[in-house]
Design a protein around this nucleic acid. Structure first.
Length: 313
DNA sequence: CGTGGTGGAAGCACGAGAAA
DNA sequence: TTTCTCGTGCTTCCACCACG
């Protein structure tokens, strides 16, 4: 800030004062007036303005909304809720310093992987074992490496899990939990539990591996996987669902078999015999009814002839 | 080098006084 | 009586200067 210097002490004082007004978890909704901050810090309003500018330029604070005079409608609305202020102070959001790394060029960088200008690419002498050379580190276990690589690729993992391009830096830390069969879900559940117990995790932790180590240490026994209960509940629910579906299939098969049996019975010998008997009975009933009708007709005719005096044949 | 003060500017609303 | 102009209040930012 040329021609507008401000001391680190003042910047820190203003940052602390602003932080006391912001939401602790998100850093948002920081809206004190410059005069209020000046009262808290004992600095002048002008110095508070300079320090706020420094915070903005450092990338740790963003002025979300400039302070301004309220419009008449806004003032009426404010009066209804008991706020008689005439203006609105600026709204700030406090956050971490973000380092935005550019994505690699799809064709590859021209500045990387340059051929060495040295004539000889290997050293002529090799330090003997036991000398002052650094000891060789043991390679991380394949389990831990697999867990680390899966974790940094998991879409539920926090952004800082992708701080490093591979999971190798994380592997040594995850050796113990990998031996106990932890999954990326377990790691993320441990992080969620950590936040849920009142801890705060910055967007870009200074030492993410150390932070994860602290989270794992706080979790305690690595044999107790954080998501084991949840997975057991899901497995039980899955089993119940499969049983229910199997019962539905069995019920459907039974209904199918019953329908096929009923259809088969329609063309059976018993049904044919019964139908023949019924048909013969119906014919006999028909013949009896026709005979009865004929007799009744004969009787009526005889009676009519008697009344008319016609002698019977 | 760091702090504090001064003056100017922007944008909006309100109130008082002058003008139509 | 209505409309217009001007000063004031309130918040912010910025440049410049004096002082320890």
């Amino acid at each position: 800030m040329p021609n507008n210097p401000v001391s680190l002490k003042s910047v820190v004082a203003v940052a602390e004062a602003r932080a006391s007004f912001a939401d602790h978890r998100t850093g948002r909704n920081c809206r004190p007036t410059n005069e209020r901050i000046a009262q808290l810090t004992g600095l002048s309003v002008r110095t508070v303005q300079r320090a706020s500018t420094a915070l903005r330029l450092l990338g740790v604070a963003t002025e979300v909304m400039r302070g301004r005079q309220r419009t008449r409608a806004e003032r009426y609305a404010s009066w209804r809720v008991g706020d008689r202020g005439r203006g609105w102070a600026s709204v700030w959001a406090l956050h971490d310093s973000r380092f935005h790394r550019l994505s690699p060029h799809p064709e590859g960088s021209l500045l990387e992987n340059q051929p060495s200008v040295k004539n000889s690419l290997t050293t002529s002498t090799r330090p003997k074992a036991g000398s002052s050379a650094a000891p060789r580190r043991t390679a991380p276990s394949p389990q831990a490496l697999t867990l680390a690589n899966r974790w940094i690729c998991d879409r539920h993992s926090p952004p800082w899990a992708r701080r490093y391009r591979t999971g190798a830096p994380w592997a040594r830390l995850l050796t113990t939990v990998a031996e106990h069969g932890w999954t990326p879900r377990d790691l993320n559940q441990a992080i969620t539990d950590w936040i849920g117990t009142g801890h705060w995790i910055p967007d870009a932790p200074h030492k993410p591996i150390g932070l994860l180590g602290a989270i794992l240490a706080a979790h305690g026994n690595p044999a107790e996987r954080p998501s084991a209960l949840e997975e057991a509940r899901e497995a039980a629910e899955f089993t119940l669902t499969r049983k229910r579906i199997a019962a539905q299939f069995a019920e459907r098969d039974a209904a199918l078999r019953a329908r096929q049996a009923a259809r088969a019975a329609l063309s059976g010998s018993g049904r044919r015999a019964a139908l023949d008997i019924a048909r013969q009975a119906a014919q006999r009933a028909l013949q009896r009814r026709a005979e009865a009708d004929r007799l009744a007709h004969e009787e009526r005719r005889t009676r009519v002839d008697e009344i008319r005096g016609i002698p019977a044949n």
